[in-house]
């Protein structure tokens, strides 16, 4: 059997090419992308609204104002109550599970596509990079919208509880430590919400994408969802 020209190494594609392909894919799959992104938006909106509602409550308590409703009178002096912490943790769990699930589904239904791309000569790293870019973008935009919706929700709730006093004592920036219990402030919470949403979306999609990219194409294409 004679030796032919040796098989060369596959080239790495320039970053701009991955960016172009991932955006094209988001655009054409717009309806599906919106649903995935909505999953992220909801998770972050829930988390941010609960968290921020708590911040607003604390800020107004420290300022000496009391909720007009006074539901939590007994805990008013102690800062964050166990119940509030419990609520924030619960919303964080709902958010993590929701986002992980929606990203996982979005990738799993594309295993066949991953296998096909590998048949056409895609490197494993290229496939993972596509999903990283797509999910990073979805995660960031979904989380930003979610954080804004969550803030709006918390503000509306605050208005109901504290009336217009809310705006005089609105905890926009982090509080200084000497003013009692440390508060993060609205801006930091929005930022943290965005970062969390993006990280969860990227982990939730690139981990299964990486697993699919590692599979031999025949196996990836066999996977039925």
């Amino acid at each position: 059997m004679q030796q032919r020209t040796p098989i060369e190494e596959q080239i790495d594609l320039p970053f701009i090419e991955s960016l172009r392909i991932s955006f094209q894919s988001l655009k054409i799959r717009f309806g599906r992308s919106i649903i995935t992104t909505a999953g992220i938006t909801l998770g972050i909106a829930f988390l941010v609204s609960v968290w921020m509602n708590n911040e607003i409550g604390l800020a107004l308590q420290e300022s000496g104002r009391q909720s007009t409703i006074n539901t939590f009178e007994e805990t008013a002096e102690q800062g964050i109550s166990t119940k509030d912490i419990w609520l924030i943790i619960m919303s964080l769990i709902v958010c993590v599970v929701g986002i992980a699930n929606s990203m996982l589904m979005a990738v799993t239904e594309r295993f066949r596509e991953i296998g096909t791309m590998k048949c056409l000569g895609a490197l494993d790293g290229f496939v993972v990079r596509l999903f990283l870019l797509e999910s990073g973008f979805q995660g960031f935009s979904g989380a930003l919208i979610g954080a804004l919706i969550g803030t709006l929700g918390a503000v509306l709730l605050g208005l109901k509880d504290y009336g217009l006093d809310l705006f005089f004592y609105f905890p926009l920036l982090p509080s200084s430590p000497e003013d009692g219990p440390m508060q993060l402030g609205v801006i930091v919470i929005i930022l943290l919400g965005c970062i969390l949403g993006m990280i969860l979306a990227v982990i939730g999609s690139s981990f299964p994408a990486w697993r699919a990219a590692k599979l031999p194409p025949a196996e990836a294409m066999r996977t039925e969802v």
Binding site: I7, E9, Q10, Q24, K118, C119, G121, A122, M221
Partner: peptide, 27 residues
Amino acid sequence: LSQKQIAAFRCHRVGYIFQSYNLLHVR
């Protein structure tokens, strides 16, 4: 073959045709 050589092999040396076409629906 290394991973990169296999990718190049699939890309340059072979053309695949499947029963279920395996076209990318978004393109």
